[in-house]
Simulated scan of single mutants.
Amino acid sequence: MGPQEAPRTTWPKNAWYVACTPDEIGQKPLGRQICFERMVFHRGRSNQVVALEDFCPHRGAPLSLGFVRDGELVCGYHGLSMGCDGRATSMPGQRVTSFPTIRAFPVLERYGFIWVWPGEADQADPAKLHHLPWAESPGWAYGGGLYHIACDYRLMVDNLMDLTHETYVHASSIGQKEIDEAPVNTRVEADQVVTSRFMEKIAAPPFWRMALRGAGLPEDAIVDRWQICRFSTPSHVMIEVGVALEGLGGYDAPADRKASSIVVDFITPETETTHWYFWGMARNFAVEDTALTDTIRQGQAKIFGEDLEMLERQQDNLLRHPDRRLLRLNIDAGGVRSRMMIEQAIAAELAAAT
């Protein structure tokens, strides 16, 4: 694929994607490519987030190399100022009323993230944003991070919808042989693909021993463990995970007898072979313990770093051998059905366009 060649359709565009976190938009504009669209983010006069095409209409320079002045984006090449609607407002020694406009993307700031809609602006409905109840509740704590990963975003969806790999990729943190031994169930619920696995009367792996300590529970206790992965379009995966003191109901055990959380995964395509991975964990125990939040974040960073290496090298192999047929096993059902849901969303967009 040449540098100017747009990819074939591999993702829905009429959807809300996480573009960045609020702390990434500071005094300088932020440039980011999302669904092959090069965008620039900054804050306008009233502190609202603005997303524009990262292209100066004068000479095509990236506006992300400019600066923000009085809530407007100023090109760092010749000083052209761009309004929040994508219209040129001023330029030293020039009249700009006839300058072409650039694209402005719908954008939302909600749940601690900046969301962007790369598709048709007139279809950008805030009501279509994935609802995150935990992000609005004081009874939950959240910590996370961001990785840029050189692989097709759908490989990450596959990875998250089949946690069998934990036994091998994450053997020192969250993996254990019981994951392999426990049956996995896959089903479709309304607009979600759900895979679930339950393990009873097992020893907690290192990461969950740490979580048990944080929840004020004995780290060496025998536990019941669960993993419930929920995929929703365009590319979000929320994973309910946890351990409870054995024999008390597992997933349904009393809150003070378990350590449970939601692994948060927002996967934002950049190109056909790269994506932005916003990861984190929302927990509803020891929510005031900021040190525990940092410890969990560090643990997750290590875990997801192990995924990063595996996925990037997997992508390299697939590019080297594009004609090789890959196997589909029962453990792959969650990823397969998630991809089907993605394809259905893309097909619906194409049908509406034609």
Rank of each mutant, 00 (worst) to 15 (best):
I228L: 02
A333I: 14
P254Q: 00
I303P: 06
L350P: 09
H321F: 09
T274Q: 06
G79P: 06
I262T: 06
E72T: 12
I114M: 03
E272F: 15
A124Y: 04
V193E: 12
R38T: 15
R283L: 05
G247R: 01
T10P: 12
R257C: 03
V193I: 15
E200M: 14
A61Q: 00
A150R: 15
A171D: 06
F198S: 12
W117M: 07
L80W: 10
A190F: 02
E272D: 14
F41D: 09
L108K: 08
M310D: 04
I102Y: 01
L63F: 01
A121W: 03
R283H: 09
E109A: 12
T186P: 02
P22E: 11
A15W: 01
C75A: 00
M281K: 10
F36D: 15
G299F: 09
V74D: 00
E178Y: 04
C56D: 01
E120V: 14
M210W: 02
S172L: 13
P234G: 08
C84V: 13
R225A: 14
R8M: 15
K201Y: 09
F231G: 02
G143P: 08
G305M: 01
D316T: 13
D224M: 06
F231A: 06
Q227W: 10
I239E: 06
C229H: 07
E72V: 15
F99I: 14
C75W: 02
V336C: 09
H131Y: 13
K28D: 10
H236T: 15
I262S: 00
G86D: 05
E343D: 14
V18S: 02
W117D: 04
